[in-house]
Amino acid sequence: MAKVYVLTSGKGGVGKTTLAANLGTAMALKGERVALIDADIGLKNLDVVMGLENRIVYTLIDVANGKVHVFDALVRHKQLKNLSLLPASQIATKEMISPDDMKRIIGEMKERFDYIFVDCPAGIERGFRNAVAGADEALIVTTPELPAITDADRVIGLLENMGFEDDKIHLIVNRFKAHMVRNGDMLNIDDIKSALSIEVMGIVPDSEEVIISTNKGVPLSLNGADGRMNKILDGIVRRLEGEDVPIPNLNDLAEKNSLWNVIKSLFRHR
């Protein structure tokens, strides 16, 4: 029976789709049966990030309309046979599917998967209500910036109103820049925790590798790059699976040495 997580934020562009793709892939690499659902109808992105945009035949809307069964619409990943995507439609709108449709579709999928990640659109309107409908738990994605944090607080409040218990709402802080936090130019994790009053499930550093992997359509774990990012994703995956993995500290999250830093350190030793 699958555990269903929705990745939501309120704010757009904080990394929900990227995390959905990368967490899903990391999970699948561990042998779990994973499904990703793109609930951003009309602004679909998850298929592109997964490199599956040329393999879509049927979409979430087709399933909602009863045109096809969900298992005919699921697109299997090229490499990982235990990873599938239920794509969004680009020409339809969020009004063409309802929270009840989502609950029904997810219900039909639950037997065949271990984990289902729903990629929620930005906002708090119909798209949000659709995405949240079938979920057991929520992963709130925020960046360490005030607008993102205030939007996240709004979303957590809405989830509370909808009946999500505190232990079913988790926080992932994305695009964390350790050197800015050290200089006092960026909010630190304690500031964010006290502003939002929820426990941190993961901290993901900012990384140019993400941009590269997005454009290639190859998630980080399959990209053969940046071991540091993979280690961090692995930490989050293990926490999701119930393991008590400690959250990385500021040093673990520091940027790897850029060429400039290396040169600077050479001069310092003279």
């Binding site: 205030t150 607080d153 709004r154 957590i156 409040g157 809405l158 509370e160 109103n161 009053s197």
Partner: peptide, 8 residues
């Protein structure tokens, strides 16, 4: 006895 969030 709870924190009142944005929108609540």
């Amino acid at each position: 006895k709870k924190t009142v969030r944005s929108g609540q």
